[in-house]
Design a protein around this nucleic acid. Structure first.
Length: 474
RNA sequence: GCUGGGGUGGCCGAACGGUUCAGGCGGUAGCCUGCAGAGCUGCUCUAUAUGGGUUCAACUCCCAUCCCCAGCUCCA
């Protein structure tokens, strides 16, 4: 755990300001993050959001908070229905495939799982109950088409998150023309009456035959698992309006309480300077990149290393650079294990303390990852200097290793430190053979064996402490 | 159209009125090494889209212009 005296500051979309973070219950944080719609493989833009949320969560945990994290899985909407119909499989079977893929992807990216992954289709009763409450309060109404709508004009705070004025909305550029069933154009659906296009996807409920609207799931599920008021709600900027605005409206109109204290939104990414789009041919899923042979952890590092509120330009050049940065950290941690030098005379402790304070202070400042990483790399260079001078004792190296582990609990890019386990005997024999050749200054044979081992994925390094080896990482 | 966010070195990106812009990546020279790898050091520099303005001082504030991105009802 990293401790500092300072406060944590987060930029709250509600106020458009950095605010001191104060959870409802001291020492505990309840977070809800908008998860994937499981109709396709998630793309790197989705993962930027999930990685931002992962970083946020890891930092809160590192600062000693007990975090409860809920991420929804949207498994019922136009796209999932259409997908299941196209593939001629039941909705659940269709979405399960992509749920599974999603979990594989976040595992590859070393994203810590949420505590609960509620599916919309598992929470129809909760949604129905919430809608009934809104109807009882006269805030929701049934339209001519049998669908149930939220009456935006009954909720005076509408627009407070996105800073949108309701009357200006009517003049908006994309208000659809065929919404005759609603009383007002800006009203949105809580419950959608069944139509033939829905096929066999419907629920018979007190609200009639149909399916939930998109926004209601997040209100119903977040409140079920986190309470009527909770601490942090995250998502991409595109969700700010209408999705999150509508969530606030539904939830606060129903409970009369503040829904969420801190709203945090991540900016989008671009690819090669352009909006990511299938049309431009610059649309990538995680799987696309893995298929090209990229290290998922380098992808993690890249997507995480730019501040979350900053638009980020994804390039393959950047991905290569990220790989280099991750390697540098891994090499450093590996190097610590081989150290057995003199005591640094307190220098290691000084550098460590400085790095920790700077890292923590930066992260406390609305997750200022750029400065945090800079302080980390400064630290690596400082210790490397001492290592070069053989001025790091075993005990000090262990301390540095411990600090690196704490940093990595937040960053999640170094991973398990490779312990030099015993090599398979045949490989070990090769290493020994090379050592013999080296002692005899038979460089040709030594180099040949080194090349042979490299072909087997074993990288040899001759150090002052003798020959070292490690497995080659992707 | 309206509302926001941006434009910083070869690349990615911090900083934000006042030491020659943090850090990463790449290139290059040197040290170390039998060689390599890792590491260290130097260089890669009249940097802040453009034009004005405020100021003793601007990348940082103000005005204008250009360009990019996003939101304006279901895309993270």
């Amino acid at each position: 755990m990293i401790t500092t005296q300072s406060n944590i500051y987060f930029f709250n979309t509600l106020t458009r300001k950095k605010e001191v973070f104060k959870p409802l219950d001291e020492g505990k944080v309840k977070i809800y993050t908008c998860g994937p719609t499981v109709y396709d493989f998630a793309h790197i833009g989705n993962f930027r959001a999930f990685l931002f949320e992962d970083l946020l969560k890891r930092w809160l945990i590192q600062r000693g908070f007990k975090v409860t994290h809920v991420m929804n899985l949207t498994d019922i909407d136009d796209k999932t229905i259409k997908g299941s119909q196209t593939q001629k499989v039941p909705l659940r079977q269709f979405t399960e495939f992509y749920v599974k893929a999603f979990f594989e992807d976040i595992k590859a990216l070393n994203i810590q799982p949420a505590d609960v992954y509620p599916k919309a289709t598992d929470h129809i009763p909760e949604m129905v109950a919430l809608i009934k409450t809104l109807m009882a309060k006269g805030i929701a109404y049934k339209g001519e088409d049998g669908s149930i709508y939220f009456s935006v004009c009954k909720f005076p705070d509408y627009g407070k998150l996105a800073k949108i004025k309701v009357d200006e909305l009517k003049a908006g550029a994309r208000v659809s023309q065929d919404e005759y069933a609603k009383e007002e154009a800006q009203d949105f659906a809580l419950w959608k009456a069944w139509t033939p296009e829905d096929g066999d996807v419907y629920w018979e409920t007190e609200l009639g035959k149909g399916r939930p609207g998109w926004h209601i799931e997040c209100s119903a599920m977040s409140m079920k698992y986190l309470g009527e008021t909770f601490d942090i709600h995250c998502g991409g900027v595109d969700n700010m309006f209408p999705h999150h605005e509508n969530e606030i409206a539904q939830s606060e109109a129903a409970t009369g309480k503040k829904f969420v204290n801190y709203w945090m939104h991540n900016e989008h990414l671009q690819v090669e300077g352009k909006k990511m789009s299938k049309r431009f041919g610059n649309f990538y899923t995680l799987r696309d990149l893995l298929a090209k042979g990229y290290d998922p952890i380098a992808i993690r590092y890249l997507l995480m290393s730019t501040h979350y509120r900053q638009q980020f330009n994804f390039t393959f050049e950047g991905l290569e650079a990220a790989k280099g940065a991750v390697d540098r950290l891994r090499n450093f941690v590996r190097r610590l294990h081989d150290t057995d030098g003199k005591e640094s005379g307190g220098k290691v402790a000084t550098f460590s303390a400085k790095a920790e304070v700077c890292f923590a202070g930066s992260m406390d400042d609305d997750l200022n990852i750029g400065i945090a990483l800079a302080s980390l790399f400064d630290f690596v260079r400082e210790i490397n200097n001492l290592l070069d001078a053989n001025m790091v004792s075993k005990a000090e190296a262990a301390e540095v290793g411990g600090l690196m582990m704490r940093f990595d609990e937040v960053l999640g890019v170094v991973g398990k430190v490779e312990v030099e386990e015993a090599l398979p005997t045949d490989i070990d024999a090769l290493v020994q053979k090379r050592e013999t050749a080296r002692k005899a200054k038979n460089w040709k044979e030594a180099d040949a064996i080194r090349a042979q081992l490299k072909g087997m994925g074993i990288v040899l390094e001759d150090t002052a402490q003798g020959v070292r080896w490690h497995k080659e990482k992707a």
